[in-house]
Nucleic acid binder design. Structure first.
Lengths: 246, 246
DNA sequence: CGAGTGATTGACAGAAATCAATGCAAGTGG
DNA sequence: CCACTTGCATTGATTTCTGTCAATCACTCG
């Protein structure tokens, strides 16, 4: 276990044995939270902000609610492993997923008192809770932490903007954009295992599952992608996908 | 001229006489930039960041380009007066407006080297250019400035999220949401003068001007709003608008 | 006054939603 | 080990909404 191994390995939090919470780790290979944090950013100073840790990590099962809309924004969420989604349920029952969150990503940040979006676990997910006030205090003392938060927020802003621009485009374009984006975020350029059900993707893209299914079938027929197995895609023709994404 | 009157009134910048640039001001009532800054935030410390001012204010005519997509992100933009829009032009010629920006709002922030969106003047607009590197340096020294930037970015993020959620909904809902939001941002609850043409609103909502026009006509027929004159609306039935916005 | 921009209205076409049924795989319990 | 259930995905038929094309109108500006 190289590099950043400070005093963090003793991060037994509130009586929870985190080795049991991290399926992939053993007592011999303790988890370094600062490493997870740094996945999202290249500023090493942020390691200190881990000290703001107060609660967690907590493990959530598939579809488990992490925070509700309207919950006080006491904590900021950091994905350690798995995938989370944030969004909103409309009064008519329809649901819109604003974003998916991958390991190393910070989300749930807000300047309001209440969360404007819910957060749920897409897969089995491990979430680290950072106390908002503590983090803000740390940011006030250490401007490098403030800069980290600024960078994280700016990235999320960029993503949200791209998303809202995409929503005005036809279905094929949205799906192609989503697939490309997902393959980049998951670090795979060719083989893509969708971690979330079609239902979620449709809710994210503002489509119905039926339209999504038809669109993916069309992409397959056109030869841009191949379905290797259940929720496993092969992006065969990157160029044509990018062309569709416009 | 109360309160914040520091040494800022002598803010003659690069040979420009800003009294000529501010139509509403005279030599006797110099403009206090920090006041404009503070419209967007309640942190008085930010006044210092005005020192990062390097270029501007510059006045733009209707539809004038302020920054292009791909321009280096050397400067952050602050709307002093008027309204600006930011967005992107697709290869097929269609245009999406990501956001409108009102006085006191900071935009064009990015962690990338190039602007991902263009910025244009909707009306006659006065823009203050804040040098990115200077502002970042100030943020490093003074964490209160960093916090101001964080707050501004978080607000923009919130707005972008709301926008992308809205884009998945039917036309009537989008228009109602937009009108309510605009009336709040412009500080009017009842009488609403649209500062931008229908073309821009349509591009922002992902609709065509025709659909927008029809939707507004429908809103008028249903009694929710009344058109008092050219681009002037009266929001007659707030409750029903909010109901439509869902 | 005429030209031009921006908004409105109508007829029509096309894309996506909706409704409904089927298929497919994983997990459950006997 | 096998029916059975359940959750997801697919496919087809039909409707609804929105975009497109085209004509007209209203207002502003030169």
């Amino acid at each position: 276990m190289p590099l950043l191994m400070g005093g963090l390995m003793n991060a037994r939090v509130e009586g929870l044995d985190f080795h049991r919470l991290f399926p992939g780790t053993s007592q011999q290979q303790p988890v370094d939270f600062s490493k997870v944090l740094l996945q999202g950013c290249n500023q090493s100073a942020v390691k200190n902000s881990i000290l703001a840790l107060r609660r967690g990590p907590i493990r959530y099962r598939r579809n488990a609610m992490i925070v509700c809309e309207g919950d006080p924004t006491e904590y900021i969420l950091l994905v350690v492993s798995g995938v989370a989604r944030s969004g909103r349920t409309n009064r008519d029952g329809s649901c819109h997923i604003a974003a998916f969150h991958f390991p190393g990503e910070l989300f749930g940040w807000s300047c309001d008192l209440a969360h404007s979006l819910f957060a749920e676990a897409v897969t089995e997910t491990l979430i680290l809770f950072l106390k908002r006030s503590t983090l803000l205090g740390a940011a006030l003392r250490d401007s490098r932490i403030a800069n980290y938060l600024l960078t994280a927020t700016t990235n999320e802003l960029r993503r949200a903007q791209e998303n809202s621009l995409m929503m005005g485009r036809p279905a094929g374009c949205r799906v192609a954009t989503f697939l490309i984006d997902l393959s980049i975020r998951m670090g795979k350029s060719k083989y893509l295992d969708l971690p979330m059900p079609y239902r979620d993707i449709a809710d994210h893209l503002g489509l119905t599952v039926e339209t999504l299914s038809r669109t993916i079938t069309a992409l397959e027929k056109s030869g841009s992608i191949v379905r290797s197995s259940w929720r496993s895609l092969i992006l065969r023709d990157h160029a044509s996908l990018i062309r569709m994404a416009g």
